[in-house]
Design a binder for these strands. Structure first.
Length: 505
RNA sequence: GCGGGAGUAACUCAGUUGGUAGAGUCACAGCCUUCCAAGCUGUUGGUCGCGGGUUCGAGUCCCGUCUCCCGCUCCA
């Protein structure tokens, strides 16, 4: 059996299959779709649920992790404390010539002091319109044209000028990348958080945001959980929920969307033990994916370089999956230090300290974050499961999901619609469907029906044949090997339970 | 946000210099069929992405717009 190389696998193929079989549809499709929004269909919702269930059980079926489900709307101050208000609203500009993109607030770092003075002199000599006057008031060091000012003062003031009066200086600057002058687009302010209003009146004082990450819902509840669950450090809080980011560009199907779901576990530890816990969680998390059948070769860690770490992070690894479009992050494991809790203590005025009864110490815990994308994991499991096999006569399309992730666990098929086979199969189906997601199919040849289940990723097919009439046994056909074994029809439930059983972790 | 490509049935696609919209697959109803698709008969299914314009007439030409894919950029 040869397998075509997976490099031939395109996203288009998966998107098409996903639509045909009911995994994912474009949102509001009959109205032309909504950019970057997708809906999960009948099979998709089962797969997604199974992914989330597996994650939830892995996390919470242990002593030291509690679950919560926080509100999507939170107090606006949360996002000031978290740094999102500041960091999510950077004005951006593009160079029309070379297409380079810059953050307005960091553009001045790439421009020499000499060039800065040149631009400032141009602005100074321009006609004294109101805006120039205003600028002179806010940037005295520049306005005085005192070139003996220390460089950092010049730079700070110039950065401020750029941010407040981009119209004034941008036409005087050259693109640091291509060197062309006056090629910048207007500064556009991106607010990456979705804004809405509490109450029916659109009053700005009632503005709130749809959470851009679920983590903050855990942090703000950390003291509540400690108090109510009697947990002691180290312990974790798990949550699955939707988050929203008003991305500039959505792309790659479910990979970058504006509405997405996260599976996050924030683990609270004593400072100093954080590195060890970080390593432990990092390895545990990648094993979660491989234990559920993801090809090891398609997974790797991507460590964030020190100078590119987020403002809160001490160390960070992404678990990346090799999608048809390249490597993409499906989970991030970050050492967030005590940044978040410290900030919330500052902004809320409430203590975030933990009192360690054993050592009589008081401290703000460090947090090891494991943040997996539910939608991205869904996509990785789907892409990874997809296989085309040459059986010699034809190409078999099959989704080789781990049985616990498979949307449909078992299909029940009468070999032919004769004698009492359909009735017996119906009875078996009626029994199984109460315990497993099951499917009954009597349409077409048996081979066709097996193929249909292959394409839906159903791991087991139970077939009633003439021998069933004699000895009450049925065949169970395995999706991947296509091999069959005979099982007593009364024992199928037990047989499936065994196949779907979780290992003790 | 920039550049390129695409959008016609549920899916993959055809559709000539502008002249009544097609195929295969899928699905459904039968027939056939005793273990790995595509055998037979019949049937359902199309705002040709959307909106304008040109024209006697637009899937086809023009303009705008939306959406998807690819490449840049971005991803705190």
């Amino acid at each position: 059996m040869t397998q075509p190389s997976k490099s031939e696998l395109t996203l288009d193929k998966i998107v098409s299959l996903a639509k045909r079989r009911g995994f994912a549809f474009q949102s509001s499709e009959i109205y032309g779709g909504l950019n970057g929004c997708w809906d999960y269909g009948p099979l998709g919702v089962e797969l997604l649920r199974n992914v989330k269930d597996e994650w939830w059980k892995t996390m919470t079926l242990r002593e030291n992790i509690e679950g919560i489900d926080a509100s999507i709307l939170m107090h606006p101050r949360v996002w000031e404390a978290s740094g999102h208000v500041e960091n999510f609203t950077d004005p951006m500009i593009d160079c029309r010539q070379c297409k380079a993109r810059y953050r307005l607030d960091t553009l001045s770092d790439e421009i020499s002091v000499k060039k800065i003075w040149e631009a400032v002199e141009k602005v100074q000599s321009s006609n004294g319109t109101g805006i120039v006057e205003e600028w002179r008031k806010t940037s005295p060091a520049l306005a005085s044209l005192d070139k003996k000012q220390p460089e950092d003062v010049i730079r700070t003031e110039f950065a401020g000028t750029l941010e407040r009066f981009p119209v004034l200086v941008l036409p005087e600057l050259s693109c640091p990348n291509c060197g062309n002058k006056a090629t910048f687009t207007e500064a556009r302010k991106f607010n990456l958080m979705f804004k809405t209003f509490v109450g029916p009146v659109e009053d700005s004082s009632a503005a709130v945001y749809l959470r851009p990450e679920t983590a903050q819902g855990i942090y703000v509840n950390y003291q509540n959980v400690v108090a109510s669950s009697r947990q002691k450090l180290p312990f974790g809080i798990a949550q699955i929920g939707k988050a929203f980011r008003n991305e500039i560009n959505t792309k790659n199907w479910l990979f970058r969307t504006r509405e997405f779901e996260q599976m996050e576990m924030q683990f609270f530890v004593k400072p100093g033990t954080d590195d060890d816990w970080f390593e432990k969680w990092r390895h545990e998390r990648i094993e979660w994916f491989t234990n559920l059948g993801i090809n090891k070769d398609k997974l790797h860690f991507h460590r964030h370089e020190k100078d590119k770490l987020a403002h809160y992070a001490k160390d960070a690894y992404d678990i990346e999956y090799q999608f048809p479009f390249g490597w993409g992050e499906i989970e991030g494991i970050h050492n967030r230090t005590n940044y978040d809790l410290t900030r919330h203590q500052e902004f809320s005025g409430k203590s975030m300290e933990y009192f360690d009864d054993a050592s009589k110490e008081k401290y703000i815990p460090y947090i090891i974050e494991t943040s997996a994308g539910a939608s991205r994991s869904f996509m990785a499991f789907l892409v990874d499961a997809y296989a085309e096999e040459d059986t010699g006569k034809e190409i078999r399309s099959v989704l080789k999901f781990h049985p616990r992730l498979a949307p449909i666990k078992v299909a029940v098929l009468p070999l032919v619609n004769r004698e009492t086979m359909p009735e017996i199969a119906r009875n078996i189906f009626d029994d199984l469907r109460k315990r497993f997601r099951a499917f009954y199919d009597d349409a077409g040849s048996i081979g066709r029906r097996y193929r249909r289940q292959d394409e839906a990723g159903t791991p087991f097919c139970v077939t009633v044949d003439s021998q069933t009439l004699q000895d009450q046994t049925v065949t169970v056909r395995d999706r991947d090997s296509m091999k069959q074994e005979r099982v007593g029809s009364a024992k199928i439930s037990e047989y499936l339970e065994n196949k779907l059983k979780r290992q003790n972790e």
